[in-house]
């Protein structure tokens, strides 16, 4: 158990460092951490299934701008691990992962506040042109980020697994059924967040086109993405041809991104 807890802590640590020092390779996403948690706990398939569900819920969660989003890393790792350890399905993972992610977020905020101290230290080293000092100040915060998820994950697995199992077994059937429904509803938040980023009245037709294509035909997401790429190229050609006579008239439609300031608190 201790060995597993350490490995799960390391998975969370790698996940949190993904957007810190690995250039956001997407190792932080629940689809990936779910797979790794499954490997450690000996049930890869269940890990992948739960990871996919969590991915849907948090698809829209993004650390855009200065906002600190819910910690999908700790939430994803612990949610998946508890679901596998307690022998329950994805619903349990969803319902545990969401509050865990919100709680864990506060530790991430704390580290970012502490980092200001190292930044000011770096300023002082810069005045002496001390490259090594600046580099050192750069590499201490990632250690803090790592510990901020490793310690809670490790402790939660060591101390909490049994309690979580008992807790879940004590929950009445109607509530558990309701949680299952809630789990199915939650991905809506992810999609709505994506809409907030991409949707505009002008472009709405493409959303509905994708929706209708998937609803009435058996096209899967890969097919829709490929057709979509073709449609985009066709539109590009048409706009280019029009531009010859009419100049630019398509200017302002993409500033809706800055509007999508999302309040995570």
């Amino acid at each position: 158990m201790v060995a597993q807890a350490i490995m799960l802590g390391i998975i969370a640590g790698i996940g949190i460092l993904d957007s810190r020092i690995f250039g956001v390779l997407m190792l932080e996403r629940p689809l990936v951490t779910g797979f790794l948690v499954g490997l450690v706990l000996g049930d890869v398939q269940q890990g992948v299934l739960i990871g996919a569900q969590l991915e849907l819920i948090w698809m829209g969660i993004a650390g855009i701008g200065a906002a600190t989003p819910p910690d999908v890393v700790t939430g994803g790792v612990l949610g998946t691990a508890f679901a596998i350890l307690s022998g329950q399905g994805a619903e349990v993972a969803l319902v545990l992962a969401v509050p865990i992610a919100v709680l864990a977020q506060s530790l991430g905020v704390l580290v970012r506040i502490i980092n200001t101290y190292f930044m000011h230290k770096a300023d002082k080293f810069a005045l002496k042109a001390d490259f090594r000092g600046v580099t050192l100040m750069m590499w201490i915060p990632p250690i803090l980020f790592f510990l901020s998820v490793f310690i809670p994950t490790f402790l939660a697995i060591i101390l909490g697994a049994e309690q979580v199992k008992n807790l879940i077994e004590a929950v009445p059937e109607t509530i558990l059924g309701g949680l299952k429904v809630a789990g199915n509803l939650l991905p809506v938040v992810g999609f709505a967040l994506l809409m907030d980023m991409l949707f505009s009245k002008k472009m709405a037709v493409f959303f509905f086109l994708g929706f209708l294509a998937a609803s009435y035909t058996s096209l899967d997401i890969t097919a829709i993405a490929l057709f979509g790429a073709c449609i985009a190229v066709v539109i590009y050609i048409v706009i280019n041809n029009n531009n010859g006579n009419q100049g630019h008239q398509e200017k302002e439609s993409y500033n809706n991104l800055t509007e999508g300031e999302i309040d995570f608190e």
Binding site: P187, F191, M203, F207, L212, I224, A225, Y236
Partner: peptide, 20 residues
């Protein structure tokens, strides 16, 4: 941007239909 937003919206629309 307009090309990628087009593909993005098509895929999101498709996902709303197939993944919820």
């Amino acid at each position: 941007m307009s090309m990628t937003t087009t593909v993005g919206l098509l895929v999101v629309g498709g996902m709303v239909a197939t993944m919820l």
